[in-house]
Amino acid sequence: MRKLSGIFLVGLCLGAIGAVAVTASHGTSAPEPITVAEAATMKTDSPSTAPSTTPTPTPPPETAPASDPGKAPEKKPAVDAAGLDRLVRGGNVSAVVFDRQGGAATVSVHADRGYTSASIVKLLIALQVLERNGPAADVQRMLARSDDELASRFWMSYGGTSIVTRWAAKLGLTGTRAPTDPGRWGDTRITASDVVRIYQYLLDHKSSTIMKALRDATERGSDGFRQYFGIPDAAAGRPWAVKQGWSCCGPTRMLHTSGVLGEDSRYIVVVLTEHPAKVDYATASKRVTDIVSTLLG
């Protein structure tokens, strides 16, 4: 009995020591399996071996561009060519938004694609007439009401196609071309990037006569066409000044909106569009307004 009791006592002692060891082990290492499981999940979706009792630190996911305080995170462009093309189904669109405060274009889509100018060329006609001390009041009326009769009179009296070639050279308009038919000023060829340059010149040289006319643009043109599509309809209360353009009677319809938007004329906005002839003007006008709304974001 004494021998059995001694063995029994030794067993009890060893059992107690083992229990303490097990209890101590659970108390100090409980977080470790969680840490290892999280690391395994972040590292790979494939089966992994059993975690060790001493896990190695797991590097965080790669976020260097966002976490680097000296480098702004990259942003996906809000406007792209494909997105704008979808708004003019079966047609063409070009758009430029130039931030005068930042000194750079924030949007530039098909900026050098050529279009028939329609009434946008009246900006060059106005520059020519005013430079030669022509009637300022008539120039303002031509622009504000998009008056074709006045434009034709000025075109014939102040140089015709030479108006376009002269001002294209003076302003560095690389994509602007005089019409092949000298009597059709509306067939002048333009690009969105060139129209931006025209507005830069007007604003830099403080052409108050022209800019006032563009701020006073009437809702209806002299031919009755509603010319508040595009920039005016999308402005959402911001100040604007515009010269619009529209043309008919061909396989396609041209519908252009151009001008400045915001306090101190901060943004130059130019949208040139060409639509299939089967698209009516009301639909085309809405599409141009939708494009400007997209550009303004």
Results as ranks from 00 to 15, higher is better:
L14G: 10
R100L: 09
V88S: 02
T273L: 05
A151M: 11
D148Q: 05
S146V: 10
G90F: 04
A78P: 06
T58C: 12
E219L: 12
G83Y: 02
Y228V: 15
M42R: 14
G91F: 04
L203D: 08
K212D: 15
L127I: 15
S67I: 11
V288Y: 01
R100Q: 03
P61C: 05
K3S: 09
P31M: 11
F8R: 09
T28K: 08
G297F: 01
F225C: 02
Q101M: 08
E32M: 15
L171A: 10
A105V: 03
A37H: 01
G230H: 05
T23E: 13
R2F: 03
S94I: 07
W246F: 06
E74I: 10
R132N: 13
K278L: 13
S48W: 01
A282G: 08
G250P: 00
G230M: 06
G245L: 11
L171P: 00
N133R: 13
W167Q: 11
V107K: 02
L171Y: 00
K243R: 12
V109S: 06
R177T: 15
W155N: 11
S208I: 04
K76G: 05
A39L: 08
G15H: 10
M254V: 01
V260L: 01
S208T: 12
V269K: 06
K75Y: 02
L203K: 10
D147Y: 01
R253K: 15
L127V: 14
S48A: 13
T180A: 14
T218F: 10
V107A: 03
Y228I: 14
G114E: 13
Y281Q: 13
F154P: 09
T165I: 11
P33L: 00
